[in-house]
């Protein structure tokens, strides 16, 4: 994946990198209820409506 982006990776790094990235893919209990229409910009609205 990094090679496609022209980012060199030292030998032996790929495996450790995969472990770290996989650890961030956590199960999220709110994911199932996320409305189809929501996009990242709705967060700005949430900031103003949750004061």
């Amino acid at each position: 994946m990094l090679a496609v982006q022209d980012v060199p990776l030292a030998a032996g790094r790929a495996e450790r990198l995969a472990l770290g990235v996989n650890a961030l893919a956590v199960a999220d209990p709110l994911r199932a209820a996320l409305a189809f229409e929501v996009d990242a910009t709705t967060y700005l609205l949430a900031l103003s409506t949750n004061q």
Partner: peptide, 11 residues
């Protein structure tokens, strides 16, 4: 997707 979830977590 993590950014889409952000407003739900704030709420």
């Amino acid at each position: 997707e993590v950014l889409r979830l952000r407003s739900a977590w704030l709420e």
